[in-house]
Amino acid sequence: MNGAEQVAIEARKQDIRSRWILSAPALIIIFVAAIGPLFVMLLYSFLVKGDYGDVKPWEFSLDGWTSVFFQRDIFDDTLGLADAHISIIWRSIQLSFFTTILTLILGFPTAYFIATRPPHTREIWVFLVTIPFWTNLLIRTFAMQQVIRNEGLLNNALIWLGIIKSPLQIIYTDTANLLGMTYVYLPLMVLPLYASIEKLDFRLVEAGYDLYATRFQVLRKIVIPLVKPGIIAGSILVFIPSLGAYVIPRVLGGGKNMMLGNLIEMQFGAGRNWPLGAAMSITLMILVMVALIVYVRNASRGGSGHV
């Protein structure tokens, strides 16, 4: 090894060292605030639950994980499927899926409308879309409760118009959850959709019409493929918080229509089963990751060529 090489290696080492030092603050935050707590959760999920909540330190057990999907029969101690848990997880997935679809159906025309306004009026529309963010989620959810409850705005209006005789039972059903989540998460769909529709070259739409495409074909063959990044981003932004929703099902769904978020909260609260809560939290995270991978894979297939 000659001298020059040694100097070069030394310089590279110096370089690497200074990079580590420079990125240390960010790394510390990530470890303390994100990865650290995850490891705590992972550890807790393998511990034995404490008698009054908490866990028994360093007593390991797989009970937390098995009780995510299974439960022991009280009388004969056999292992059976935890129907309640599975139905709640399944409901969460379904509701999140339909919320995503519903926000997409409502958000796409909205975003398209905004993107096709003259530039200076677009800003006003975007501003209007973001207004709900000024208010706390809890307050917005209570507002929704006021609209859909039995003596609420919607039912009173429908009765007054003579469309229905007795109030519709919307509150404390899955429909209420769906309506609430759609309302709360709609801006998260509209904004990324708008961002990508706004970038759409509308001469391509004209070219489509010129080449004998109908309105529907222009939408399906030109607009949707080109704004796909916005559709993917919006769907991800809506699906993830929907899956972990807590406040909305708590206020609108009542006790019967729990979602995964409420089930997890229960384990840390009244249920006094922290390992189960931890295992469920990680299950939720895995669900989100699997959904993301499946979705992004499917969505990016077929849309070759464009970046």
Binding site: L204, E206, A207, Y209, D210, Y212, L226, G305, H306
Partner: peptide
């Protein structure tokens, strides 16, 4: 409508569909 006319256009900036071959 444009899609009912047997007339086609070559656009100024081509307006090729970027997601197609």
């Amino acid at each position: 409508l444009p899609n009912q006319r047997p007339v086609n256009t070559v656009f100024q900036n081509y307006a090729l569909f970027p997601h197609l071959t």
